[in-house]
Design a protein around this nucleic acid. Sequence first.
DNA 1: TAGATTGTTAATCGATTAACAATC
DNA 2: TAGATTGTTAATCGATTAACAATC
Lengths: 206, 206
Amino acid sequence: MKKRKISNVIIRRLPRYYRALDLLYRNNTERVSSSELGNLMGVTASQIRQDLSCFGEFGQQGYGYRVDHLRLAVRRIMGMEKQKSTVLLGVGNLGRVLLMNFPFEENAFSLDAVFDTDPVVIGKKVGRWTVRGVEELEAFLMENSVDVGILTVPKASAQEMTDSLVKGGVRGIWNFTNTEVSAGETIVENIHFSDSLLTLGYLIST
Amino acid sequence: MKKRKISNVIIRRLPRYYRALDLLYRNNTERVSSSELGNLMGVTASQIRQDLSCFGEFGQQGYGYRVDHLRLAVRRIMGMEKQKSTVLLGVGNLGRVLLMNFPFEENAFSLDAVFDTDPVVIGKKVGRWTVRGVEELEAFLMENSVDVGILTVPKASAQEMTDSLVKGGVRGIWNFTNTEVSAGETIVENIHFSDSLLTLGYLIST
DNA sequence: TAGATTGTTAATCGATTAACAATC
DNA sequence: TAGATTGTTAATCGATTAACAATC
């Protein structure tokens, strides 16, 4: 096991490993070799062995990997064995989709509270949550240790809401606003719909 | 100007260049140097000059880049000067968010038709579109040249819908299903919410 | 044992950064 | 002209692939 720093490219492959392994697991597959897994995922067997070697030794010469064992190892590596908490800011259309449909628990997260600025929705129930006013956010973050803030607010308030979240001590921000927010040490993970579609546009135009 | 193949990392930086330049443009900034732009975007000046050199020469020694000129150049590079067409498959919650709120035109796309399998919504109006049954999809793709199919269907029908889109000759698929679909030569751009959140989970756990 | 497949080292390939002559 | 900044070449750094001894 090589103890070098885990690079970003490897980190972004971990969820894909997990998805592939989870699929095999659900199909009751017992063992898988690095080349089989590579075929399934569209990467080389070499890369898989190289990646896994950053975290430990999970296989067995001449046999490969036990699917259930490796799946659990990847869960552990990604920190999925410990549930993390989130709050959602912005109960607009996208916010509602996430809170109504996104499988937080499946991904080892819980959604603990939702906030908005619109007096029309504050106090109303959306799904199993009662919408709180953002003025309560600071106090909530004080009383509850929250790991991640989910940003589904309009662009215009993205930075301000980020500042509140950072001040409240969240460790990560899941940002859907298609703007860059500055959050200091706090880790920001972006889902930029527009960037993604523009990339696709480039690729089909050439 | 070096005429080497444009690498994937560079392509994925193009929308970010465009966003930064568009912001400067809206602020009526006239000129920008590679180091200023680099500061703004959080990349090195060297990288910006290196990236741009793949596509041509856009700057002027001792001066930098004209913002309006470079912004237009990036638009052209990304193929934004020609509008591309899309159809949306799956008028569930996420599908509705996209068709009601996503700024297709701003990104040089149009949304031309929406399809679903649910008899309850077929024929109904959603926003400015009348939902069509998927059985009409094939004929629609025959008659209309469609560039991109948007997949906001349940996981279970993701591959089947992909097959129809590929058969119908779309050039790209914007895939929100959090599954890998095989589409042959057709380009697939994924937005995987779960992968993204799991990545964030890893980063805050270490 | 013989065959298969790992984990790891070395070789290759690609991306980023540094440096600088060219020139506005 | 002097200062600033480009576009490009060369140097460095990092990621992927190939190869193979170790061993189940």
